[in-house]
Design a protein around this nucleic acid. Structure first.
Lengths: 367, 367
DNA sequence: CTCCATCGTGAATCGTTGG
DNA sequence: ACCAACGATTCACGATGGA
């Protein structure tokens, strides 16, 4: 489909096969309402990573993610961002997604090019890959940056729609969503994943619903498996995807052919997860509800444990969680530490579970 | 207090009044274990960017003021980061915290200076300020970057302590914590808040607990109300704070004088196997905990091995270490023989790893 | 059919020590 | 410097298959 825009034609509702910088150059100035870009992350993986069971992690080792230096990556970023900026309408806005490997470089370049950052948004994964070697924190999120073309831009933000998606509370900058897996994950005939980094449609869906209107043109310069285009089509937006790899482009086109526009109601079935309310014992310590050094007792004060700064407890030289140590002193295999252990308050013993309610109220986040 | 470090003295456990770059220059090379920095967002920059801008809306070419402001901020960042890098021990690590206004510039500079990013960590606020005008998402988080001095650095990470804080699950990169308010928030005599951006002590507490050991030196070049120093003192670390504003420095010193370090037992955290004394398998045989000739099994008794007098084991004619043979029978390249091989005890299979604890205690008692 | 145990897998910058 | 050996380490889901 071709759409008339400021005298030039726009190849909307198509996946263009080609290098994004070259293909972007063919598009007219100020013709696109929204850009979503998921560029290569420049992961710089050093060697194979084994799981504890010695199986190999199928990491991203594709050629398209190889850059020889930060300088090289910055040049690449500058090239495609400059083109995106040119084709973006003055009141349009742009999203990029990345991890700590590349997101700081993307953000810096956006600012240097005159983009006006509106929010950084955190995609919190419900089911990230663990850190197998126990050397860092679980890398459980990715970062999106939402930016207007300039400070004076009258960008679109569908505040009420976002609020409605969040039980009538303002949508926050942290979004909780599962990674793309199960039936949504596109597979080859062999059963292998079709694309190494396919994003969940719910993520793009929220982005598109938040920052564009029906009939707008959404551009994705790194289209990949076509998730942005798919979400756009479902939500009644026009899409332009650019993809260098013929296989990915073919997969995306096939995917798009099977999609019916659904309207904004589609979001209701794509929704993110409701905030979970797990309260670890460590939070009670950090919140100051229990000080390190406090003595815990079982309900008849036959056993004693001492709370430590990391939320572990110590019993006669042994150490562990409230659950493990509760089980150990009883000689049983499992124990609910929340009901087993008590603190002394005004002469009586109270289960630490009662403090958890206090913690829950203090930690009530509205995402 | 002065601490001798590589021939120069380190003014530990004090808040230094002065400009951070100048004062950092006085500290010796490679003398600090951990840096935590909460740099200003640069109000100058904010002011410039908010100034009405009469350049054309579609300026791919940047407004000069804007560019020079970012440049100024980058120069400032470079100055203090370079000093921090110099005083940081080779195996130390550094944290910075910021928002989307400055965090991308901080991250880019860290990478350009050779720091090796370990994680970006999201502080999710339970009680953020709402977006009053409904033009953006509620800015509900801040970003921390944790970086080692170099890729080769053997940085500290108290994995087990972090796991303990999170109810025996790996600590993730998203941390949920309230902002600093209530009694923790320092007030002036007038009741006004003493510092505009006082961070919660729980946040610094987790940072310090995660990436330093007792007795380490923690440096905060933008000390402010002294939260980093307070958390460090409480957790038995030495602190050095640098603060330019005499009022803030005074408040921080007063605050620190009232803080008592936690007791020795309360300060202890979970120790992992990595910290424990190494016991070769041969010691178990020598100590008589396993007799030569004992049969070892994998956990489902699919493989058998026989222990030999020299601490090697034999499987079907082949022989070698518990690790080598474990790998061999599984057809994998590596194996932890301690958890792979089991002995039969009262009808059940127990990992030989449990015997290692016994050996460790026996060897400790006799040494 | 259900239920349960097992297995596979996801954008990952994922060792240390002694010879 | 390099190399070999030691040995530490995983969470949430979906798919699969046997009982």
């Amino acid at each position: 489909m071709l759409k008339e825009e400021a005298g030039a034609t726009l190849p909307v509702d198509s996946i263009i096969l080609g290098d994004c910088v070259a293909e972007l150059a063919e598009l007219p100035d100020r013709s696109v309402d929204l850009v979503f870009a998921d560029p290569p992350y420049n992961l710089q993986l050093q060697k194979d990573l084994l799981r504890p069971n010695n199986s190999k992690v199928d990491g991203v080792d594709d050629d398209w993610d190889k850059f020889s230096s930060f300088e090289n990556y910055d040049q690449f970023t500058n090239d495609w961002l400059a083109q995106c900026r040119r084709v973006l309408k003055d009141d349009g806005s742009l999203w990029v997604i990345g991890s700590y490997h590349n997101i700081f470089r993307l953000g810096t370049q956006l600012q240097d090019m005159g983009f006006w950052i509106l929010n950084d948004v955190i995609w919190r994964k419900t089911n990230p890959m663990p850190n197998f070697r126990g050397r860092r924190f679980t890398n459980a999120h990715e970062t999106l940056i939402w930016a207007a073309k300039s400070q004076k831009s009258r960008y679109r933000f569908n505040y009420e729609a976002m609020k409605a998606l969040n039980d009538d509370l303002q949508m926050r900058s942290d979004w909780l969503m599962p990674i793309c897996s199960g039936p949504e994950r596109l597979k080859m005939e062999t059963g292998k994943k079709a694309h190494p980094t396919q994003k969940p449609e719910a993520l793009m869906g929220r982005v598109i619903l938040a920052s564009s209107n029906e009939g707008d043109v959404v551009l994705d310069p790194f289209s990949g498996s076509g998730t942005t285009a798919a979400a756009a089509k479902k939500l009644g937006r026009h899409y332009i995807g650019i993809e260098r790899d013929p296989d990915y482009a073919r997969i995306a086109r096939k995917r798009l052919a099977e999609i019916e526009p659904l309207g904004d109601d589609a979001m209701k079935v794509m929704q993110g997860k409701r905030q979970e309310q797990r309260i670890p014992f460590g939070s009670l310590v950090e919140l100051g509800l229990i000080s390190p050094g406090t003595v815990l007792y079982d309900h008849r004060a036959r056993h004693e444990a001492r709370v430590r700064a990391d939320g572990s407890i110590a019993v006669k030289g042994a150490q562990g969680s409230i659950h493990k140590m509760g089980a150990q002193v009883q000689g049983s295999s499992a124990c609910n530490g929340w009901t087993f252990w008590h603190v002394e308050k005004e002469g009586t013993l109270t289960p630490i579970d009662s403090l958890r309610d206090v913690a829950r109220r203090q930690l009530e986040a509205t995402s």
